[in-house]
């Protein structure tokens, strides 16, 4: 696998605050990565450091094979940080032409990329007349101008209305399906869950997890069950060797699975004991639940 970015022991200290603490991870070509963390967890600082706008305190990072200087490497990267920054008095097309000059790409790309984000009909409008959603889409167009090896998006849907969020997600999905590597920082879990294959979870600048999205929690999931006789159900479940904690909420019994086990296994077991279920489902924790579990573990 081709490595696009490797971060090694990266640290940023602001006065007494350790914004990023010994963070290490690597980005491989072709995957869609999510950096997940609550607000203020160091996501943007990390991206700022690899993007040459925040000075690192210690540690190192390497773009591609590390042969080029950071700013040269950044010409092969497309990135949007927080809100879109353009010259307000220039039109969409003029702004993108300027970016072309900086990145050293021919300016015929401008129209092509405006088309991708659906702004071609507004290309001669001044940037300051744009709505936030349009600004964000223009930013994506600008990041795509150089057909980047990797697209970095920091909170791309922040502050957008549902329609705007949907448009941005569609664009991201389209780009991802073309095989572009994407690094998406967000505190919105469903966003990451919907588009990412890999995830890095950080909290207070410390890495909690990095790997495939479904590998976050090693647990085997849990059952949700209902029967007419709730007490008996709880008793049988507690007797089963592969079932861990059993808890009750209303009429719904939740049983944590400790060894691999299918829904039909538990159904058969209970039926043999003479209990018939009125409701049975096997579930895995959603990313949100896993995320909360993970971030809470380290609070204590």
């Amino acid at each position: 696998m081709e490595t696009i970015l490797s971060i090694n022991q990266l640290t940023k200290v602001y006065g007494p605050l350790k914004a990023v603490n010994n963070l290490s991870f690597t980005i491989e070509k072709g995957n869609v990565y999510g950096i997940l963390g609550p607000n203020g967890s160091g996501k943007s600082t990390t991206l700022g450091m690899v993007l040459n706008v925040v000075n690192k305190t210690s540690g190192e990072f390497k773009w591609f094979d590390g042969a080029e200087s950071t700013h040269e490497a950044l010409k092969k990267v497309g990135a949007i940080i927080e809100h879109p920054n353009f010259y307000p008095y220039m039109t969409a097309a003029q702004n993108l032409e300027l970016v072309c000059k900086i990145k050293g790409v021919p300016s015929h790309k401008v129209e092509e990329k405006l088309e991708v984000v659906g702004l071609l009909d507004r290309k001669d409008s001044k940037f300051r007349t744009f709505s936030l959603g349009m600004k964000q889409r223009l930013a994506i167009a600008s990041a795509l101008l150089n057909d980047p090896e990797i697209l970095i998006l920091d909170e791309p849907t922040n502050g957008l209305d549902p329609q705007g969020i949907h448009q941005i997600r569609e664009i991201i999905r389209k780009i991802a399906s073309d095989g572009t590597t994407i690094l998406l920082a967000s505190h919105l879990l469903d966003e990451v869950e919907k588009v990412c294959s890999h995830v890095v979870i950080i909290r207070k600048g410390v890495k909690l997890y990095s790997g495939p999205v479904d590998g976050i929690n090693a647990s085997h999931g849990f059952f949700e069950l209902e029967a007419e006789n709730t007490e008996l159900l709880q008793q049988f479940l507690n007797e089963h060797p592969s079932i861990g904690k059993v808890s009750l909420k209303g009429n719904l019994v939740t049983a944590i699975i400790e060894e691999p086990m299918s829904a039909s296994d538990i159904n058969q077991y209970l039926f043999e004991k003479g209990l018939s279920l009125s409701y049975l489902i096997k579930r895995k924790e959603s990313l949100e639940e896993q995320f909360l579990q993970l971030t809470n573990q380290t609070t204590a």
């Binding site: 993007l51 706008v53 200087s69 700013h71 040269e72 990135a79 920054n85 010259y87 900086i102 990145k103």
Partner: peptide, 17 residues
């Protein structure tokens, strides 16, 4: 004030440039 300096750097302009 337009934060375009940040964007210029991200787009691949070095601080020296």
């Amino acid at each position: 004030s337009n934060r375009t300096l940040k964007q210029n750097l991200i787009d691949g302009l070095s601080k020296k440039e």
